[in-house]
Design a protein around this nucleic acid. Structure first.
Lengths: 188, 188
DNA sequence: GCGACTGATGTCAGCGAGTGTCATCAACGT
DNA sequence: ACGTTGATGACACTCGCTGACATCAGTCGC
């Protein structure tokens, strides 16, 4: 065993989510989070770039899943098919964590600066998705547009899934959102 | 004439854009902006909620133009037609200000927290756009999806317009972006 | 074993964003 | 003239965040 309790980052992330949920993001100070995690304020900022980032640490894993699922689609598959594969894989990541995702989302939507941070994470996802489509030979601006629209559909589907019961398959809800979006442009 | 020079807010907004462009957003302090505008730091925060908001003051006007153009489309027009009308009207607002828009955009893309703020403004536009579509009888989640995708297309078109010569009509570029996006879902 | 090194943490000083509060004083209405 | 209003100044304060240096268990080379 080390000089300190292990997993300081994990303790900080859990303490932060708890406190943000209990009393709100703005009413929570970094000093309080650090105290609950048993470290100093300075250590918080060694693990997370800022007070918001503590809720978004898992983003990196997400980019990889998205890109590899898009790349794994059959080479002859049209862009929409590859896009769907990526977003369905993304949805799969959350399937087992309905309650955690719901609590986290409740904290985020309750605060404007957390919503800002979420939006830039989604934009980064869209950017990575567009990259993955370009690697499949989809040209710009089509790749960018498809990625942006796809992420929008994902977001809408994800919110629907959060609002519903835990048994529902998030991947299926995301598929349906993409279908609906297709209807806007195809059916008029 | 009042006790002070008039239009303190305008002077602050101009001073801020100048300084952000000259030396970067993070290297500029609010005290410096206030000094260049001839007021105190406290006065800056009476005119703008924070250091970022000084670049986004015109947003309110934007929401109104968007909503009224969507509402003004013929009642029988399909959602895509109404959506296009709104985004084209929005593009028209910028037509005369190519250089100003370009400088402002350069400042924004150079800084992550300014990009965050821009994204939440765009999300607010999408939300208002979805409202306007719902008032036309478009049901959710179609209204939300169409609005999100439409804003994505607007953004892509707007960036293309900024990158090109000032004579190009931004409305036309936005139209083309929407067409391309339609191709993803229609043509496969 | 012993010393050098590493790496995560603590400690402290400090800057800058943003807020609450009260004072000031031209303009305006009565 | 007199009270009111509204924009501003002045000042103290909290909190997010950073840089610099100290500390010390574990580890590696010898």
């Amino acid at each position: 065993m080390g000089r300190w309790e292990p997993d300081a980052g994990g303790r900080l992330a859990r303490a932060a989510l708890e406190l943000y949920a209990e009393r709100g993001y703005e009413q929570t100070t970094v000093a309080e989070i650090a105290q609950r995690a048993g470290v100093t304020e300075r250590t918080f900022f060694r693990h997370f770039a800022d007070k918001r980032e503590v809720l978004f640490g898992a983003s990196d894993e997400v980019y990889e899943v998205l890109a590899s699922a898009v790349g794994a689609a059959p080479p002859a598959a049209p862009p929409l098919r590859a896009l769907t594969a990526g977003l369905v894989a993304l949805a799969g990541l959350c399937a087992e964590r309905h309650e955690h995702a719901r609590q986290r989302q409740a904290v985020i939507v309750a605060n404007a600066s957390l919503r800002e941070r979420e939006l830039i994470k989604l934009a980064a996802m869209a950017s990575g998705l567009a990259d993955a489509l370009r690697r499949r030979g989809v040209a710009d601006p089509t790749a960018t547009l498809a990625a942006e629209a796809g992420i929008a559909a994902f977001r809408v589907g994800f919110e629907q899934w959060l609002a519903g019961p835990a048994e529902v398959d998030p991947a299926q809800v995301v598929r349906e959102a993409l279908d609906k979006l297709g209807g806007v442009f195809a059916g008029g």
